[in-house]
């Protein structure tokens, strides 16, 4: 059986020596979008940073197409096929659009594919990335991940600060990336947009996975999402102060909704 493009087992990640992510297990298959949701501070970005090598994985394994990479330097993980679209449109601002793509181009990575997906960038090849609009900068960052010929692309909150129209446009591209056979792991503040494009979803709360299942189960169910994010029933006056699930002394990782 073919190994999943990305598989996490018992992953714990620290941020500045503080444990933030605990015992996370998830898989991302080729050609699918795996959505990771959670409230602010749930540990989503720390989890992505841990996978990419920017934060320290304290325990557990991160496998890329079956190969353990959690001890590799970030650039070695990238060369093993991991693309990372970080939060906050991290273009190299003094480099032109084309130079941004060239520095990460590897293997079969093709600039023409990027320009086909984003014709706006084709017209601005020679312009410094710092002079682009927010949406165009996000396209550069997505394109940069694409030209590295990745097996997996992690996308962290790409809609941050962008107009809804641009966000919808970029979400379509996320679907196209999956269509190319890439495993996409998507963190997104607009949960329903992400669930529309995704196949499977995971919800993080306080650094632990409290839900794993098909996106269809959560799509449009705001009350359930709210309960998964905050651990309380919204109709009963918002999140519970102790953060526990109803009825429960059960640890979140073992809750009935995690599967």
């Amino acid at each position: 059986m073919e190994a999943p493009a990305l598989a996490l087992e018992g992953v714990a990640v620290d941020r500045a020596e503080v444990p933030v992510v605990h015992d996370v297990a998830l898989e991302a298959a080729r050609g699918e979008v795996t959505v990771v949701l959670g409230a602010n501070g749930a540990g989503k970005t720390t989890l992505m940073d841990g996978i990419a090598g920017l934060a320290q994985v304290k325990s557990g394994t991160v496998r890329l197409a079956g190969t353990a990479v959690e001890k590799l330097a970030p650039y070695k993980r990238a060369r093993a096929g991991l693309g990372y679209v970080e939060q906050a449109r991290t273009t190299f601002r003094t480099l032109t659009v084309e130079q941004n793509l060239l520095v990460s181009q590897r293997g079969d990575g093709d600039l023409a594919t990027v320009y086909r997906l984003f014709p706006e960038l084709d017209k601005r090849r020679g312009l410094q990335a710092g002079h682009l609009s927010g949406g165009e900068q996000q396209m550069v960052v997505l394109g940069r991940a694409l030209v590295s010929a990745p097996k997996v692309v992690l996308i962290d909150e790409m809609s941050l600060g962008l107009a809804p129209l641009v966000v919808r446009r970029l979400m379509t591209t996320v679907g196209e990336l999956a269509g190319m056979g890439i495993a996409v792991v998507l963190i997104e503040q607009f949960a329903n947009l992400a669930l529309d494009v995704g196949t499977s979803a995971h919800v993080l709360r306080k650094g632990r996975i409290v839900f794993s299942g098909p996106c269809a189960e959560l799509r449009g169910d705001e009350r359930r999402l709210h309960r998964l994010y905050f651990g309380g029933a919204p109709s009963a006056g918002g999140p519970r102060s102790d953060g526990a699930e109803p009825g429960g002394a059960t640890p979140p990782a073992a809750e009935s909704e995690a599967r």
Partner: peptide, 25 residues
């Protein structure tokens, strides 16, 4: 040169340079 562009990228955003596969060390 490609290596020069990588050096510029490294100087501007060291963390990002690494995650795009630039061998920073």
């Amino acid at each position: 040169t490609r290596i020069g562009l990588k050096l510029q990228a490294l100087s501007e955003r060291p963390g990002t340079a690494e995650v795009v596969g630039i061998p920073a060390p």
